[in-house]
Design a protein around this nucleic acid. Structure first.
Lengths: 214, 214
DNA sequence: CTTTGGCATTTTGTATTCAGAATGCATAGT
DNA sequence: ACTATGCATTCTGAATACAAAATGCCAAAG
């Protein structure tokens, strides 16, 4: 049994991300440190440390004397984030061991085909999507790159709960993942990267419809 | 007169980066919060906030109960960082307005040719290099990308002072910058991006010689 | 001579306190 | 009626205080 011994600031950060993903915090609203700290049962000090971390990831903004607020969402920023993630994941794929990619391709294919029709809860879909991309990048030796990606994706999490129930895109997403996996099976890395980019761009466009105009 | 009103944590962060760039902190050594806070004339609270920010950028590492230490350098990490920066700057260039790029190309060329032979101080060279890349990316509308780049570059600053005096690379760097500028003048964006990548990779290889083996 | 246990010291992690800035409201003046 | 000024309140930013974990040292046992 591994005893959990992590700094409070990290646990708090995770808890806040959890709540953010559940849509508990509205974009643009202020954080009241005292209230939130009391709610979490911790003091303001580690909470503030967590807030600073999240601000570094773009989840929060801060201004002198007015504290932290949840960063507002915008179509522009979402497009920016997608472009960044697409580029970083491409790089990750590019620097992965082709042999390893080939090896995980069948599993990627299976996962993508796994639940094509299931009208799953939105959160479930996102979790599966994360897992899939996680496996895709599992062979990337560039640790800094993976860290960076994790941070940027954290900044994107705010956009996830904007999308309401919807099944067509899920099927589409599934098909795109299959396409990527097939390219990897064929050892067509360039094609896989291209398909990955298309996957992000496509997902973005589907999402954009749900984001209010700037 | 603009009165300086920034949180202490930011000022501290900048000061620490300044000192780091001057080589005052050895990689791998522990940070003693009380000592450093006293030295800076602040309390531990904003200092820790700055340390947490820097840890998020990869400049510092932290572990439970043992506090912060300056992240050790390694050839592997340096290669990782260069790959990331090259990819991100490429993306930045790609998403910049071609017209704007064309407009700044002459200035870029001038800057690159500016001091080709001057045997300048190492810090001066780095500052000029930063300025050049700053201008190069000045037309990038992706703010999140620029923020991200700034953070990753902060993480690379530790490697700068490892290089000792040397003039050949400076000339080489200058030539590569000219090449990029010329491509932009010709409105050859693809070529410019390629040259930019080559610039980073080349610079990396020159640097690698000075980094101790992992 | 090596190793282990415990104690003292140092340093981090967290809580609490204090000071100062921002916000909102009420009131007085035009 | 509207604006401006002063005051009270609320909240953040920073400092200090406290608790707990880690480190190092010394002594005693094997």
């Amino acid at each position: 049994m591994a005893i959990e011994r992590r700094p409070l600031r990290e646990q708090i950060r995770d808890e806040l991300m959890e709540r953010l993903t559940r849509g508990e915090f509205a974009a643009g609203t202020d954080v009241n440190e005292a209230v939130l700290a009391a709610e979490l049962g911790v003091s303001r000090t580690p909470l503030r440390e967590a807030l600073i971390t999240l601000a570094g990831e773009g989840v929060l903004e801060s201004s002198q004397g007015r504290g932290f607020r949840f960063a507002p969402v915008s179509r522009k920023e979402f497009r920016e984030l997608v472009a960044i993630v697409a580029a970083l994941e491409s790089l990750a794929l590019e620097s992965s061991d082709p042999v390893h990619l080939r090896k995980i391709a069948p599993e990627l294919l299976r996962m993508a085909q796994g639940f094509p029709d299931a009208v799953a809860e939105h959160a479930t879909v996102d979790r599966r999507d994360d897992e899939w991309h996680g496996l895709l990048l599992s062979g990337c030796p560039n640790e800094r790159l993976l860290d960076l990606l994790a941070g940027v994706k954290a900044g994107m999490r705010r956009y996830e709960n904007l999308v309401v129930a919807e099944d067509e895109p899920v099927a589409r997403e599934s098909e795109e993942h299959c396409e990527i996996a097939r390219r990897l099976l064929d050892e067509d890395l360039t094609g896989a990267i291209e398909a990955l980019r298309a996957n992000w761009v496509g997902g973005m466009e589907r999402m954009l419809a749900h984001i209010p105009a700037d």
